[in-house]
Computed example of a mutant assay.
Amino acid sequence: MPVSEPVDVDLVLVGGGGAASLVLAALGRRRPDVRVAIVDPVHKRGQDRTWAFWGTPGTFLDPLLSASWDEADVVTPGGRRVLPLNPLRYAMLRSAPLYELAGQAEKDLSAVRVTAPASQVLDDGERVLVTGPDGVPLVRAGWALDSRPRPPRRPGRTSWLQHFRGWWLEADGPAFDPGRAVLMDFRTPQPARGVSFGYVLPVSDRFALVEYTEFSPAVLTGDEYDAALRGYAGLLGLDLTSLRVREVEDGVIPMTDGPFDSHPSPRVVRLGTAGGATRPSTGFTFSAMARQAEDVARAVAAGRPPVPGPAYPARHRWMDAVQLRALDRGLVDGVAFFDRLFARNPAERVLRFLDGTTTLREDLALMASTPLLPMTRAAFGDAVARVRR
């Protein structure tokens, strides 16, 4: 709704994407007695992205999932490793059902939607004022949750990107195995600096997401992504002449040890990538966003400040920084590194580490399974870089 006077609420969500939708869904399940507003120039609807994540079955997300798998494959030129994921599962969530759930929560909470771009979020320590273009006041709130993308507070010592293109492929007859997801397929040609892999998330035997992903410093051109996808489809034995590309998904996610400021002022909290939810070593984000949303909703329902806990333990951020440095400086081969990690650890431990939920003892076991000398050199280099900075 356009506004002439600022809307007065207890909590304003600045940005209406995945992070805000998860917060709305979590608030909708608890129905706290708070006034909520959402500020975003676009009301998110439909399928504009796909999230893949690990988790335990039996959550509110189950009815929203497009598919889930109890095992997943990691493939290298040397062979295929089948990962049993129990008690976890690998799950796919497309955006439309989450946006729909958030929309219903918005109605249940009688939230106010302001369809305008937010320009500034001004915090005087007592209230927050969200302004639009030309400084027009939009919303005044007790707290602001800002999920708009932004760079880290300062550049990282290592800054890569997870960048990808995926094709949603449809066949007239059986072409995919819906019981098996391919988590990482490293048979793709490897870039001079970085790691590439394909993956396959089948919804049915006739419909699947086939994607090409790189961890590297720079994005590719559209033609280069398409060529990589055609090559990967060939590795899978797919005949593209008999398949239809129903949708195309592109994305670029930061992989950096640069710090994100999750609480930049007394009454402003950042969520999603802007709040540190993206895992520096892999680019995975969804599970941490979901944890942030649950923390916020629990706090609001209990009358506490809506400040979530850290997205990842400090030791995990350090481990990620060392891993990024080792890959960036060529101290380890990326394919061999990930293959060794899965070969020497239970899959469930690796996946929980990537979600930021492993214990210190498990982290020590993971570190012991990596190449000792190269990772020691990376850790030493990271320490020197921190001191110099």
Rank of each mutant, 00 (worst) to 15 (best):
Q323G: 10
Q323M: 10
R325N: 11
R325S: 08
R325P: 07
A326H: 01
A326I: 03
L327A: 09
L327H: 08
R329K: 12
R329E: 09
G330W: 01
G330P: 04
G330Q: 00
L331N: 00
V332L: 11
V332A: 07
D333N: 13
D333T: 03
G334S: 04
G334H: 04
G334Q: 02
G334F: 01
V335F: 00
V335Q: 05
A336K: 14
A336D: 07
A336C: 06
F337N: 09
F337I: 04
F337P: 13
F337L: 04
F337C: 07
F338A: 08
F338Y: 14
F338R: 02
F338S: 11
D339G: 12
D339R: 10
D339Y: 04
D339L: 05
R340E: 03
R340P: 12
L341G: 06
L341K: 02
L341C: 03
F342E: 04
F342W: 09
A343F: 06
A343E: 08
R344Y: 11
R344W: 05
N345C: 03
N345K: 10
N345M: 00
N345H: 08
P346N: 05
P346C: 00
A347N: 09
A347S: 09
A347L: 01
E348C: 14
R349L: 12
V350E: 00
L351E: 12
L351G: 15
R352D: 14
R352I: 11
R352E: 15
R352H: 12
F353E: 13
F353P: 11
F353R: 13
F353L: 14
F353A: 15
L354H: 15
L354T: 10
L354P: 12
D355K: 13
D355H: 07
D355F: 12
T357F: 13
T357H: 14
T357G: 12
